[in-house]
Amino acid sequence: MGFSIGNAALRLATGAFILNSGIGKLHLDPEHAAGLQGAAARVIPQAAALEPAQFGKYLSAAEIGLGTFILTPFIPSRLAGLALAAFSGGLFATYLKSPGMTEADGVRPTAAGTAMAKDIWMVGIAIALIFHRKRK
């Protein structure tokens, strides 16, 4: 397992972003937690079974855990990429399934959907981490 400055940069950018997002959700108000829960339930219906406050705590813990995992240097980049792919794929699926976020074609974002569509960059980083090959 070698060190790649490129992979380190990708991991630092996404890991710090996700970790900060999770820390920011530590004290979600119930209305905000319910809004995030509603969006998540479009992709993961079981999320609707939780109380909003409980969902908010789980979401915060998951983001803090994932951000820390991606930032941990001894975790292989491919494994960090797989974890990031699951997370970012879920975010992108939420964007695609949320009403009013996409144009009629179902892909391009509306003005309201731009904030969610930008999460596609994490999907790209996940793919780069998973498929990066060292030069010999």
Rank of each mutant, 00 (worst) to 15 (best):
T72C: 15
G38N: 09
T102A: 02
T102D: 06
I23M: 12
G22K: 08
H27L: 07
A48L: 05
S98N: 10
G15N: 03
R11P: 04
S4K: 10
L10P: 02
L82S: 05
K57T: 15
L79V: 15
A41W: 07
Q54N: 13
V107D: 03
S88T: 08
I120Y: 07
L26S: 10
F92Q: 10
A61M: 13
L82K: 09
A39Y: 02
A104W: 00
H27P: 00
R42V: 01
K57G: 08
A85Y: 03
D29R: 11
Q54P: 03
G6A: 14
A61H: 08
D105H: 01
M122A: 12
K97T: 11
M122C: 01
I5R: 13
A62E: 06
M1A: 09
A39I: 13
L82H: 02
F17Q: 07
S4I: 07
S21P: 04
G56I: 09
G35Y: 12
L79D: 07
L66A: 11
L50I: 07
L82Y: 10
H27C: 03
G65T: 14
D29S: 09
M116A: 15
P99H: 02
Q46Y: 05
M101S: 03
A8E: 09
P52V: 09
T102M: 04
G56Q: 11
Q37E: 05
A111K: 14
I18C: 07
K136E: 13
F55K: 10
S4Q: 08
P73Q: 11
T94K: 05
L12Q: 09
M116V: 00
A41K: 08
G6Q: 07
G65Y: 03
L26Q: 14
